[in-house]
Design a protein around this nucleic acid. Structure first.
Lengths: 192, 192
DNA sequence: CTATTAAACTAACAAATGTTTGTTATTGCC
DNA sequence: GGCAATAACAAACATTTGTTAGTTTAATAG
C-alpha cells in the first residue's frame, strides 16, 4: 500500500522530467514506461491516464503557489518585504520542484477542457494577489509608479528561467541566485 | 508563382498561430489544413513537411535576433544605450511577430535532431553576445556587479511574457510597455 | 502450504497521426 | 482553343498513439 504510492510517485516524477525535456505531446506512455522500468500497460495499475499525470503535476504546482500567496498575505511588514518573501518562495519551489514547475509553465495547455479552465482560474487568482501587492506598494510610495500588470508579468517571467537554467554546481549558489535576481528586480541593473 | 509563395506564407502564419495556441504536438496537419482552408494533403504542394514548418518558424526568429545583435554591437554609445536598444528590438519582434516568437520559445524542443542542435547553437550565440554587453557594462562601472549570467537570463525572461500577454487595446501602448519594462529592469521596482 | 491480492507482462484495440499516391480541377500562356 | 504547370482533392498507407483485456508472476495473509 505504501509501495503503491511509491511507484505512483516514481511515475509522476519521471513524467515531470520527461515532459520537461520533450514536452507532453512529445512524450509517449511507452517512453515514460521505459524510463520507469516497466511496460506501458503496467503503469495503468498506478495511474488512471496520461491526462491524470498532467493534471496532477499542474495542480500540485498551482496549489502550492496559491498556498504560499495566502501565507504571505497575512504576514506583517512592508509591501517590499512581502514581495521579497513571495518571490523567495516562488524561486524556491522552482529549485526544489523544477520539473513540475516546468510542466505547469509549458504544458498546461494540454489539459483537457474542464481542468484547463480550472488551472487558468488558479493562475489568475495567483496573479491577482501578486498584483495587489504591487499596487499597494505603489500606492504607499514604496514602488515606482509603473503599470502594475506590466510589473507583475515582468517579475513573474523574470524568474521563470531559473527552472531551465539552474543546476547546483554551476558556480552559483541558490542564495546568490536569489539575491542577484532580487537585486535586479527591485533595484535595477543600472547603478542609479 | 507569387501565389505559391503567398499560400505558403498563409500556411506558415496560420501554423504559428495554431502552434502558439495548442502547441506543436497538439496541432495536427488536419487542424492546420482546416484553418488554412484546404485539405491536409493539399498543403504538401506548398510545404515539405510538418517539421519544415517548425524549422522555418524557429530559425526565422533566431536569425532575426542574431542580426539585431550584430547591428547593436557595432553601434556607438554606452553599454547602457546598447543594452536598451537591443532590448527594444527584442521586444519589438515580439510585438510584430508574436506567434513565431512564441513557437521559437516553446516548441523548439520538437525540432529534429540536426536542426535542434543548430537552433541551440544560435540561441547560445545570442546569449553570449548579450552577456558580453552586460559584462562590459559591469566592468565599466555602469551596471551593478551582479552575476552576468543571472542578469542575462533575468532580463531575457522578463521580456518573454510580452508575446503571451500583449494585445493592442488592452490599455497599454507598445511605448508604455517598453518604457515600463525598461524602467523596472534598469532601475528596479523599488524607489531606492 | 494455500488462498488472495497486487502488479507485472503480452497482445491487441481503435483512433489519430504525418505523409504518399493517383487523379481531377484550375490557372496562365501561346 | 489547347497545353503545360499548379494546386486542389479523396483515398489509402504505415506508424504511433493511449488504453483495455486477459494472463502470469510475485508478494502477502491465514
Amino acid at each position: 500500500m505504501s509501495k503503491k504510492l511509491n511507484k505512483r510517485q516514481i511515475i509522476l516524477d519521471e513524467a515531470a522530467k520527461l515532459f520537461k525535456l520533450k514536452g507532453f505531446g512529445g512524450t509517449s506512455m511507452r517512453d515514460l514506461a521505459g524510463e520507469v522500468g516497466m511496460e506501458a500497460a503496467s503503469m495503468y495499475n498506478h495511474i488512471k491516464s496520461k491526462d491524470e499525470i498532467l493534471e496532477h503535476l499542474c495542480f500540485h504546482v498551482s496549489d502550492t503557489y496559491i498556498a504560499q500567496l495566502a501565507d504571505v498575505e497575512q504576514m506583517s511588514g512592508s509591501n517590499g518585504d512581502k514581495l521579497k518573501q513571495l518571490l523567495r518562495l516562488h524561486i524556491n519551489l522552482m529549485l526544489e520542484d523544477g520539473a513540475a514547475v516546468s510542466v505547469a509553465n509549458n504544458d498546461w495547455k494540454y489539459l483537457t477542457s474542464g481542468k484547463l479552465e480550472q488551472f487558468k482560474d488558479a493562475r489568475k487568482q495567483y496573479e491577482k494577489g501578486f498584483a495587489a501587492l504591487i499596487e499597494s506598494g505603489i500606492a504607499a510610495g514604496e514602488f515606482r509608479p509603473v503599470n502594475a500588470s506590466v510589473a507583475l508579468f515582468t517579475i513573474l517571467s523574470a524568474v521563470r528561467w531559473v527552472e531551465l537554467w539552474y543546476r547546483p554546481g554551476r558556480g552559483v549558489t541558490a542564495q546568490e541566485l536569489e539575491d542577484d535576481i532580487m537585486t535586479i528586480l527591485l533595484n535595477g541593473l543600472a547603478k542609479n
